[in-house]
Design a protein around this nucleic acid. Sequence first.
DNA 1: ACCTGAACACCGTTCAAGT
DNA 2: ACCTGAACACCGTTCAAGT
Lengths: 197, 197
Amino acid sequence: MQLHRADVVDGAVAILDQYGLADLTMRRLAGSLQVQPGALYWHFPNKQALLGAVADNILSPMDEPIESTEWSGEITELAHRLRDCLLAYRDGAELVSATYASRLTTSKGRERLVSAAIRAGMPRHEADLAAYTLLYYVLGQTVDEQSRMQMDSVGALTDDASPLHEDPGTPDATARFDFGLQLFVGGVRHLLGTRAR
Amino acid sequence: MQLHRADVVDGAVAILDQYGLADLTMRRLAGSLQVQPGALYWHFPNKQALLGAVADNILSPMDEPIESTEWSGEITELAHRLRDCLLAYRDGAELVSATYASRLTTSKGRERLVSAAIRAGMPRHEADLAAYTLLYYVLGQTVDEQSRMQMDSVGALTDDASPLHEDPGTPDATARFDFGLQLFVGGVRHLLGTRAR
DNA sequence: ACCTGAACACCGTTCAAGT
DNA sequence: ACCTGAACACCGTTCAAGT
């Protein structure tokens, strides 16, 4: 059976989700694909490129259409969708954060954020900066959230008296996320508002 | 001559600044200190702990007093100082970003941000979240800025027609940073403003 | 075109043993 | 208390050679 680029990426995603980013090595991936490590280098020039393809894979739902037509609703929806993508796989946020030196820069999601900010009334130059500001927040917040989730899930076994075992963190994590998001949207409104006067 | 904890950290900072994070390995550090790799493990339990100490070192100027007494001025000043700390060493932003699973959480700088937000009129719970929001922005933005600086400095040699060699990026990088900062402060004002009514 | 075999030049970490 | 010597169990990457 021939090994295709997509098989390599799928195998990588599977290892990432089951064992985490630290265990996603070229040798381990090769082993799971029943192939020699060197074989991977026919499909990808190096590990960095492979991780980039994995990141694109994780972020692919970002291209699907959005419901809201109002700028603030669109921004909120895009931010939540990005967070959902990052949380969908173990260490997803860390992987994307580590690999996206200009990966989100070229993404469709970023462009949609920019156009929403323009529709809000910002000049393109500022809309660009605002989009980056929001992306930094979403990435940072979600990396933190996900790493805490993992610390909790291992600590829960060691920890004495885990109270009622009712999946903590997740309920108010979204509320925490929304607060920062609201701060951002409020910042945009404030900037436009003080100018209108 | 005895090797002290501080010598190890200083040696690590020196390698970081001269050769970058990728070259900051335990073996290389041991070599520069004229010591066997295993010797480092008497002073630090593992590499992670060493990097943590390096991060604390880099962030130590955060504890110095602030000029401004107004909340928005204090926040602006703290954000700028954090950025300055991160930019002071090669790969400083990446190192701190990678190492601070709850490193900034316990920092004095974060507490000062929280107290400034409280002084602005926020309840402590929200002030906490707002501080995190700002920290995520500063870290993300500065990591990006610094990685671009490095890409430029190696690309400048390869690149044809480097125009006049006048250190580009740096002038408006601060302006870009200030835009996001202003967006944050505006967000705080907006949130407090809409409540006052 | 696609992969194997085998090597190169590294890693972080451990630990008996030395002083 | 502090460090050496030497090993263990890994890495990413390259590349002649095979099919």
